[in-house]
Amino acid sequence: MQNYITLGANDHAASCMFYDAVLATIDWHSHINFPGWKAYSSEGQGEGLIVWVAKPFNAEPATAGNGAMVGFAARSHEQVDAFYLAALANGGTDEGAPGPRPYGPNWYAAYVRDPVGNKLGIVCTEAA
C-alpha cells in the first residue's frame, strides 16, 4: 500500500497553485492530476509519501485539523527559506519565519499555513 496524506481544498486551482510553487522548492512535483485531485511526490516519481490535494468527498468545506501538521524535509537552509517565501507569495500565511529551533542541534525550520489553513512545516537538520 502507498503511504499518503490528503489535504482538503476549497478552491482546488488556488490550492494546486500554492502546492505547485511551494513543493517545487524541495524538488516535489505533481505526478497525477485529474479533476478535483492532484498528487505530489518527491521528484514527481510517485514513490514514497504521496501528498494529495483534493476537495473533500463529502462535499463539505475543507477545514484544517486542529493540532495536525505535515512536515517536509529540506536539504538546505536555502530550501527552507525558499519554501517559506513561496508559501507566502502563493496565498499561504506565516506561522513561524525561517530560523533555528530548539528541537535539535541543527534544526532550522519554518512554518506556514496553506490557503485552507493546513499547517505545514519545512525542516533542515543539516549544519549551515
Rank of each mutant, 00 (worst) to 15 (best):
G121H: 12
V112I: 15
A13C: 06
L88H: 04
H12I: 15
A59D: 15
A24G: 12
E60R: 10
G121L: 13
T125Y: 00
K55Y: 09
A14N: 10
L23K: 00
A86I: 05
L49T: 08
V123T: 14
D81T: 04
R75P: 02
G99I: 11
D114S: 07
D114V: 07
F34S: 09
N58P: 05
M1Q: 11
P98Y: 06
A59C: 10
F34Q: 14
T6F: 08
I26T: 11
W52S: 06
F57E: 11
D81Q: 03
T25Y: 05
A109V: 13
Y108C: 03
A59W: 08
I5T: 15
Q79I: 09
E78L: 13
W107I: 12
E47G: 08
W52G: 01
G8V: 02
D81Y: 03
S30I: 09
Y108T: 03
A127D: 14
A109P: 06
C124Y: 06
Y19C: 02
I50L: 15
M17A: 13
Y108M: 08
E126I: 14
V70N: 07
G8L: 04
T25F: 09
S30L: 09
N3Q: 12
Y19V: 05
A64G: 06
E95I: 00
G121V: 03
E95K: 09
H77L: 07
E126G: 13
L49S: 06
A62G: 02
A59S: 14
W28I: 01
L120T: 03
A74T: 02
V112E: 03
Y19K: 01
A74M: 06
A64F: 04
D114K: 03
Y40W: 00
G91N: 12
A127M: 11
E78P: 08
G65L: 01
Y108E: 06
A89H: 11
D81V: 08
T6I: 14
S41L: 04
G91V: 11
M1G: 14
G65Q: 00
A86L: 04
L7G: 04
Y111F: 15
G65I: 05
G92C: 01
K55Q: 15
E126Y: 14
L88Y: 05
A86Q: 10
T93C: 03
Q79W: 02
K38V: 14
H77M: 03
D94L: 13
A54I: 00
D11Q: 07
H12C: 10
Y111Q: 14
D114P: 09
Y19D: 01
I5W: 10
